[in-house]
Amino acid sequence: MDYALHLAVLVLIWATLGLSQGLISGYLGILAIHQAAAWGIGAYTAALLNRLWGLPLGVTLIPGAVVAGSALFAITALIGRGRRDDQVIASLCVQVVVVALLVNLTSITGGPLGIAGIEWGGPGDQRARVLASLGAAAGLLAATAGLYVLLSRTRLPREWLVMRDDRAFAESIGVDAGGARSLATFLAAASAGAAGTIFAHYATFIEPSTFGLAESVAILAIATVGRAPNVGGVLVAALVIVLAPEVLRNIGLGADVAANVRQGLFGLLLIVAIFRLRR
């Protein structure tokens, strides 16, 4: 039962990441591969706040989201006028640079060894922590889905879609293309950052490799294969990503080969996702 709950927490976190990616890849059509970096920034912000001042999940959630959102917002604002393939490469650079910083700034981040002993701020027993994390992850998924609903009541999504299809036309009718892209990136990164804070308090230990390029690729695959903002589709795609290594282990593959097959699956899903992209 506890194991099922553990998997459920991970599925909800991955589904949230997939939904948040949908704000960029779905509305703006920019296939950014930096969402794991935003997830990591949120997780490290929460971990540092917890280790330094003992702040619980309820308090670190907002700073985690804001720091992740602001970091990605700033970079996106600078590359907003670039060509689309340049923007993809730039997002790859952001992803790699963030992880490299997490690895190299040893005195702050713990380097490759990461940060251990993160507390969630509630009662000490394991089950309470899992249930609280499950509730928080479900709440965040609902909030991210709710964000889509809220946005749909404004002009923003329509402006984003027009900008995705024809930026020159969008600008001619007064859409601030750079601002729109930065806003979408901020919301997406903030949501991923919040998922990172929940993950950090749940896992109690984080390290840079958890937030690597392969994870960004998986998030993009979840968003496109699951057709974000379709919550059901994203949940199924997240389930596949989370369960794949468990299934591979159960059919007798060694841990190393299972990890290779899992990452290969990310790559394959990405290709499938590009074939399945909606117009």
């Binding site: 296939l31 591969i33 393939d85 993009l220 695959a221 990405l270 290709i271 996702a273 590009i274």
Partner: peptide, 14 residues
């Protein structure tokens, strides 16, 4: 081009 670039990244990982 950016979509195909992502597909090349997927193929590279594979």
């Amino acid at each position: 081009a950016d979509e195909i670039l992502i597909a090349t990244l997927g193929a590279n990982i594979l």
